[in-house]
């Protein structure tokens, strides 16, 4: 800008050479910056996929399972009900995954709680989901919790259990049983076990997916998810099946079915 004192009201004259250098520097910074941003935005995001350490113990917890016990691929999701990116995955991508991969019997999803300390109400949400599971409604509650995240998260309220009880009513759960389950923190130890498992498996954030021997912490798009599933299928030697070939088993997505851990 300018630096002529107010009392000397004469227009500032700039050295043409320094002005040229200034514009040159401005152009260099702009080009370098835009080039760097362009490079970063074009770089494939799949680079964040890491190989699972084969020395890690197998997943021992049942978690909550959706899909056929005979599905060739099991995907473990370490999720946090209050995490916005888990909500993005659950509401935008997971419906496609269920329709195109779980129902046809290609993939079995296993959800394991990984409540992050930064989220004030996530433990209550995990306990509420476990209480819904007690009545066979984990997945409907799972979906409801993500759909209504803004109504009960740590910023919206300090009494999330009131919201969860309302959601339980909407899902047709036995209200008294659910309320008692929530109020007594009946499944606190179960959630703690899930959290311990996530840490043991070196999940760094949520959502973290373990697909075959690969692990990725990211709200994947359907295409990104399918690509990893295809890679796992190729490594497992299972025949690559399309939804049309395999036929949908619609009942596979109903309720939470527990099967022995496969990972």
């Amino acid at each position: 800008m300018v630096n002529t004192p107010a009392k000397q009201r004469t227009p500032a004259r700039r050295d043409p050479k320094s002005t040229r250098i200034f514009y040159l520097a401005l152009a260099v910074i702009a080009v370098a910056g835009i080039g760097a941003l362009g490079y970063l935005s074009q770089r494939p995001r799949a680079q964040v996929v890491t190989q699972v350490d084969s020395t890690l113990p197998k997943v021992q917890s049942n978690g909550y399972v959706m899909g056929s016990p005979s599905a060739p691929i099991e995907v473990v999701e370490f999720g946090d009900f209050e995490c916005p990116q888990c909500g993005r995955w659950a509401t935008l991508t997971e419906p496609d995954v269920r329709t195109r991969l779980v129902q046809p019997g290609i993939v079995r999803m296993r959800y394991i709680d990984f409540p992050l300390s930064m989220h004030r109400n996530t433990w209550q949400a995990s306990r509420a989901a476990a209480c819904a599971d007690e009545q066979g409604k984990f997945w409907p509650m799972h979906d409801k919790l993500f759909e209504t995240q803004d109504e009960w998260n740590g910023i919206a309220t300090r009494s999330p259990d009131d919201v969860f009880k309302r959601l339980a009513g909407q899902l047709g759960l036995n209200q008294q049983q659910f309320n008692q389950c929530v109020d007594t923190r009946k499944y606190q130890a179960k959630i703690q076990a899930h959290e311990a498992l996530a840490l043991q498996r070196r999940a760094e954030g949520t959502p973290t997916f373990v697909i075959g021997n690969q692990m990725v912490t990211q709200a994947l798009t359907y295409d990104e998810f399918k690509k990893l599933v295809d890679q796992a299928l190729a490594k497992s030697g299972a025949p690559l099946r399309t939804p049309v070939e395999s036929g949908a088993t619609k009942g596979a997505t109903k309720g939470a079915r527990k099967t022995p851990a496969g990972q």
Binding site: I34, G205, T217
Partner: peptide
């Protein structure tokens, strides 16, 4: 201001999921 603009553009692309990993807790 130009450097600030570039930083803001970086954060915008990040927020849109075009750069880095969009996940909680990382």
């Amino acid at each position: 201001a130009l450097i600030g603009l570039l930083v803001s553009l970086y954060l915008t692309l990040y927020k849109l999921g075009r750069i880095g990993t969009l996940a909680c807790g990382t």
